[in-house]
Protein backbone atom coordinates (compact mmCIF):
# COMPACT_ATOMS: atom_id res chain seq x y z
CA UNK A 1 0.00 0.00 0.00
CA UNK A 2 1.32 3.44 -0.78
CA UNK A 3 0.71 6.52 1.28
CA UNK A 4 0.58 10.01 -0.02
CA UNK A 5 -2.92 10.53 -1.31
CA UNK A 6 -4.61 7.69 0.55
CA UNK A 7 -8.36 7.42 0.39
CA UNK A 8 -9.86 8.22 3.72
CA UNK A 9 -12.23 5.36 4.18
CA UNK A 10 -12.48 2.24 6.28
CA UNK A 11 -13.89 -1.07 5.17
CA UNK A 12 -15.85 -3.44 7.33
CA UNK A 13 -16.30 -6.75 5.56
CA UNK A 14 -18.67 -9.62 6.24
CA UNK A 15 -21.11 -12.11 4.76
CA UNK A 16 -24.51 -10.80 3.83
CA UNK A 17 -26.40 -13.19 6.07
CA UNK A 18 -29.84 -13.12 4.57
CA UNK A 19 -30.69 -11.78 1.14
CA UNK A 20 -33.82 -12.37 -0.90
CA UNK A 21 -34.32 -11.51 -4.54
CA UNK A 22 -37.89 -10.48 -5.30
CA UNK A 23 -38.88 -10.65 -8.97
CA UNK A 24 -42.15 -9.20 -10.22
CA UNK A 25 -43.50 -10.10 -13.64
CA UNK A 26 -44.61 -6.54 -14.14
CA UNK A 27 -42.89 -3.56 -12.56
CA UNK A 28 -46.18 -1.66 -12.72
CA UNK A 29 -47.51 -4.03 -10.06
CA UNK A 30 -44.99 -2.68 -7.56
CA UNK A 31 -47.36 -0.35 -5.72
CA UNK A 32 -50.07 -2.96 -5.31
CA UNK A 33 -47.60 -5.63 -4.31
CA UNK A 34 -45.95 -3.28 -1.82
CA UNK A 35 -49.21 -2.78 0.06
CA UNK A 36 -49.98 -6.48 -0.03
CA UNK A 37 -46.52 -7.34 1.32
CA UNK A 38 -46.38 -4.47 3.76
CA UNK A 39 -42.96 -3.68 2.33
CA UNK A 40 -42.05 -0.57 0.32
CA UNK A 41 -40.76 -1.35 -3.19
CA UNK A 42 -38.67 1.62 -4.30
CA UNK A 43 -38.28 3.04 -7.82
CA UNK A 44 -35.26 2.73 -10.11
CA UNK A 45 -31.94 3.46 -8.45
CA UNK A 46 -33.54 3.85 -5.02
CA UNK A 47 -33.53 2.15 -1.65
CA UNK A 48 -36.16 2.29 1.06
CA UNK A 49 -35.12 0.84 4.37
CA UNK A 50 -33.63 -2.56 3.66
CA UNK A 51 -35.20 -2.90 0.21
CA UNK A 52 -33.01 -2.07 -2.79
CA UNK A 53 -34.16 -1.72 -6.41
CA UNK A 54 -31.69 -3.86 -8.37
CA UNK A 55 -33.11 -4.12 -11.85
CA UNK A 56 -36.12 -3.38 -14.04
CA UNK A 57 -38.19 -6.04 -12.27
CA UNK A 58 -36.03 -7.07 -9.31
CA UNK A 59 -35.70 -5.91 -5.71
CA UNK A 60 -33.36 -7.07 -2.96
CA UNK A 61 -34.63 -7.58 0.56
CA UNK A 62 -31.60 -7.36 2.80
CA UNK A 63 -31.45 -8.85 6.27
CA UNK A 64 -33.40 -11.17 8.47
CA UNK A 65 -36.60 -9.17 8.83
CA UNK A 66 -38.26 -10.79 5.84
CA UNK A 67 -40.15 -14.06 5.93
CA UNK A 68 -39.59 -15.81 2.63
CA UNK A 69 -42.55 -18.14 2.85
CA UNK A 70 -44.89 -15.38 3.90
CA UNK A 71 -43.70 -13.15 1.07
CA UNK A 72 -44.10 -15.91 -1.48
CA UNK A 73 -47.67 -16.46 -0.40
CA UNK A 74 -48.51 -12.77 -0.35
CA UNK A 75 -47.18 -12.36 -3.88
CA UNK A 76 -50.10 -14.41 -5.11
CA UNK A 77 -48.85 -15.03 -8.64
CA UNK A 78 -47.36 -11.61 -9.28
CA UNK A 79 -43.78 -12.77 -8.79
CA UNK A 80 -41.34 -15.01 -6.94
CA UNK A 81 -38.84 -14.78 -4.10
CA UNK A 82 -35.42 -16.52 -4.15
CA UNK A 83 -32.52 -16.81 -1.71
CA UNK A 84 -29.22 -15.35 -2.96
CA UNK A 85 -27.18 -14.40 0.14
CA UNK A 86 -24.31 -16.83 -0.38
CA UNK A 87 -23.15 -15.15 -3.55
CA UNK A 88 -22.34 -11.78 -2.00
CA UNK A 89 -19.95 -10.19 0.46
CA UNK A 90 -20.96 -7.03 2.25
CA UNK A 91 -18.44 -4.21 2.50
CA UNK A 92 -19.34 -1.17 4.55
CA UNK A 93 -17.33 1.91 3.58
CA UNK A 94 -17.12 4.52 6.34
CA UNK A 95 -15.52 7.92 6.24
CA UNK A 96 -15.45 10.80 3.80
CA UNK A 97 -13.44 8.96 1.18
CA UNK A 98 -15.95 6.37 -0.02
CA UNK A 99 -16.84 8.49 -3.04
CA UNK A 100 -13.16 8.74 -3.93
CA UNK A 101 -12.86 4.95 -3.77
CA UNK A 102 -15.78 4.52 -6.13
CA UNK A 103 -14.38 7.14 -8.52
CA UNK A 104 -11.07 5.28 -8.60
CA UNK A 105 -12.50 1.80 -9.05
CA UNK A 106 -15.53 2.53 -11.19
CA UNK A 107 -16.98 4.76 -13.87
CA UNK A 108 -20.10 6.04 -12.15
CA UNK A 109 -20.80 9.59 -11.00
CA UNK A 110 -20.62 9.11 -7.24
CA UNK A 111 -19.61 12.76 -6.87
CA UNK A 112 -22.91 14.02 -8.28
CA UNK A 113 -24.96 15.88 -5.71
CA UNK A 114 -27.83 13.52 -6.42
CA UNK A 115 -25.81 10.41 -5.53
CA UNK A 116 -26.83 10.63 -1.92
CA UNK A 117 -28.42 8.56 0.85
CA UNK A 118 -30.97 6.17 -0.58
CA UNK A 119 -29.20 5.81 -3.92
CA UNK A 120 -28.66 2.33 -5.33
CA UNK A 121 -26.42 1.65 -8.32
CA UNK A 122 -25.52 -1.63 -10.00
CA UNK A 123 -22.14 -0.96 -11.59
CA UNK A 124 -18.70 -2.52 -12.10
CA UNK A 125 -16.10 -1.65 -9.47
CA UNK A 126 -12.60 -2.97 -10.07
CA UNK A 127 -14.16 -4.97 -12.92
CA UNK A 128 -16.58 -6.86 -10.65
CA UNK A 129 -20.30 -6.23 -10.92
CA UNK A 130 -21.16 -4.68 -7.55
CA UNK A 131 -24.23 -3.16 -5.93
CA UNK A 132 -23.68 0.21 -4.28
CA UNK A 133 -26.12 1.50 -1.64
CA UNK A 134 -25.46 4.94 -0.20
CA UNK A 135 -26.49 5.00 3.46
CA UNK A 136 -25.28 8.42 4.64
CA UNK A 137 -22.90 11.20 3.80
CA UNK A 138 -20.05 9.19 5.29
CA UNK A 139 -21.30 5.67 4.80
CA UNK A 140 -21.84 3.48 1.81
CA UNK A 141 -22.57 -0.25 1.50
CA UNK A 142 -21.05 -2.17 -1.36
CA UNK A 143 -22.15 -5.70 -2.18
CA UNK A 144 -19.33 -7.53 -3.94
CA UNK A 145 -19.71 -10.94 -5.65
CA UNK A 146 -18.17 -13.43 -3.25
CA UNK A 147 -15.67 -14.81 -5.75
CA UNK A 148 -14.35 -11.31 -6.53
CA UNK A 149 -14.17 -10.15 -2.92
CA UNK A 150 -10.50 -10.95 -2.47
CA UNK A 151 -9.59 -9.13 -5.67
CA UNK A 152 -11.69 -6.05 -4.91
CA UNK A 153 -10.67 -5.69 -1.29
CA UNK A 154 -7.01 -6.11 -2.18
CA UNK A 155 -7.33 -3.47 -4.90
CA UNK A 156 -9.13 -1.08 -2.55
CA UNK A 157 -6.52 -1.58 0.17
CA UNK A 158 -3.88 -0.70 -2.41
CA UNK A 159 -5.82 2.49 -3.07
CA UNK A 160 -5.51 3.36 0.58
CA UNK A 161 -8.76 2.12 2.10
CA UNK A 162 -8.19 0.52 5.48
CA UNK A 163 -9.81 -2.79 6.36
CA UNK A 164 -10.90 -2.56 9.98
CA UNK A 165 -12.82 -5.82 10.11
Amino acid sequence: MHKGRAIVTEMTVGPVGELLALDLWNADDAATVASALGVALPGPGQAEGAVLRIGPRRWWLVGTNFDRAGLAAALNGTGVVSAVAGGWVHVQLSGVGWRDLIMQSGLIDAEDAGFGPGTVAVTPLSHARCVVHVRAATQCDVFVPASYADHCLSAWRAMGAKAVA
Binding site: P44, G45, G55, P56, L107, V122, T123, P124
Partner: peptide, 12 residues
Amino acid sequence: CPHCGPRNQEEF
Protein backbone atom coordinates in the same frame (compact mmCIF):
# COMPACT_ATOMS: atom_id res chain seq x y z
CA CYS B 1 -30.24 2.55 -19.90
CA PRO B 2 -34.03 2.70 -19.76
CA HIS B 3 -33.85 1.66 -16.10
CA CYS B 4 -30.68 3.27 -14.75
CA GLY B 5 -30.21 6.33 -16.95
CA PRO B 6 -27.06 7.31 -18.88
CA ARG B 7 -24.13 5.03 -18.10
CA ASN B 8 -20.72 4.33 -19.57
CA GLN B 9 -20.37 1.79 -22.35
CA GLU B 10 -18.27 -0.42 -20.05
CA GLU B 11 -21.47 -1.33 -18.21
CA PHE B 12 -23.14 -2.63 -21.34
